[in-house]
Nucleic acid binder design. Structure first.
Lengths: 223, 223
DNA sequence: GACGCATGTGAATACCATTTACATAACCGG
DNA sequence: CCGGTTATGTAAATGGTATTCACATGCGTC
């Protein structure tokens, strides 16, 4: 079979052959352009060159498509964060910073995914796959926080879960408020990445993870 | 005239008399129930008991109504934050904490306003009134940060603007992720208010605003 | 080669946003 | 009090969207 369902003349045969994927691609294009609210099922169908009823063979309704985009977004997000964490190399502190940068880079470079994930108003309870993908993303932050906490003497050690929630909230707040694909809602005196890095640095110093204001390059060499 | 445009029999006369306000109330109800995306102009009109064309006498389109809700939300938000700040009484540190609690309380108690303000995808550039109201809210955080920074010796003093952005981002992140009116997307081991307070405490300690892990009640008594 | 299931079509239903022409009444000057 | 002007509301029309249903197509399989 022709994978895209097209003959030699370029016209599509009765069956598309890959409609599900085509709809998801269309959704990403459209969400990136007009936000998750502006995305319409009919547009996606037109984009894929099928009738407006065809998408219902692959998704129960419009929301299920968005949920699938969000799920894929979380999978990709988790991959990016895991790659940035790199098992804590070269050292937990530098790796933690890399995760923060990867977080904002994802929000900036994949606004469609990020919108579907956090701004589409999806219910995570109704969709175990979505919940699981979201959990996997969060697990990276959790893991990184564990590693950083482990650096502290047990009596000063904060709850790693709390620390990961703080990191997540700060990252998400900066991403939502200042680092959207459209350039952000508000002018900043610094790049979002710098804002996040400075914030986490101050936070970690407050925890005592960093004894002194520290040169990260020196830190890298030490590890 | 009858302010609500109703005669003694309770039926509305041809003119509503207070439609603009009624539509805004309806919008708040509906946004609270189904989110800013689920809110429809037609529903609001039905709720107010007028035809579906009537709202256009008061708002250019659906978005202008949402923008007005958002603007009012920011005004109310600024009032609440200012009240919590209370000119830095009893001392800047305690007042700063109060602002954080007020932030989350607003997000929890006024989910309709909060949604319209931060999740409706409004463009602040097209609406000076909206921009101005939003600026007034942020100004409270900025003012509080200024006062806290002033406690530090000049050579250790961080940029107050950066600090206020950190506080805003952390608050907004926690509100968005964990403190929505619907109970939040994810279970937490602690109340959102505690999470924010702990986070800001650690942050301020990292800045050196708080010399030691400190009992806030003792701090209040001292001031 | 016939059959069944997956996939796509067209038409129908029911909403919603928005516009337009028209209706009503509130207000205002005389 | 009266007539004109303006603000506010209505009904109907247009065009778009979500969703469903009966029907069509053709891939894969026996």
């Amino acid at each position: 079979m022709s994978w895209s369902g097209r003959g030699q003349d370029g016209r599509r045969s009765y069956h598309h052959g890959n409609l599900r994927e085509a709809l998801i691609e269309a959704a990403l294009e459209l969400i990136a352009k007009k936000g998750p609210a502006g995305f319409t099922f009919a547009d996606a169908a037109r984009w894929a060159g099928v009738s407006s009823a065809a998408p219902y063979r692959h998704f129960r309704d419009r929301e299920e498509l968005i949920a699938d985009v969000a799920r894929r977004g979380f999978e990709l997000f988790a991959d990016r964060l895991e790659h940035a964490w790199d098992d804590g190399r070269p050292n937990p502190f530098t790796a933690f910073e890399n995760v923060g940068r990867a977080y904002l880079a994802f929000a900036r470079d994949e606004p469609a995914y990020y919108s579907a994930m956090f701004e589409a108003g999806l219910s995570f309870d109704d969709d175990p796959a979505l919940r699981q993908a979201s959990d996997r993303s969060f697990a990276v932050l959790r893991q990184a926080s564990d590693a950083l906490c482990a650096r502290l003497p047990p009596e000063k050690r904060p709850p790693a879960l709390m620390m990961s929630l703080h990191a997540w909230a700060l990252s998400h707040g900066i991403a939502s408020l200042f680092s959207r694909g459209d350039g952000g809602r508000r002018k900043l005196p610094m790049a979002p990445e710098e804002l996040l890095e400075a914030g986490m640095l101050i936070y970690l110093q407050g925890l005592g993870v960093i004894p002194e204001p520290v040169d990260t390059k020196a830190e890298s060499r030490k590890a």
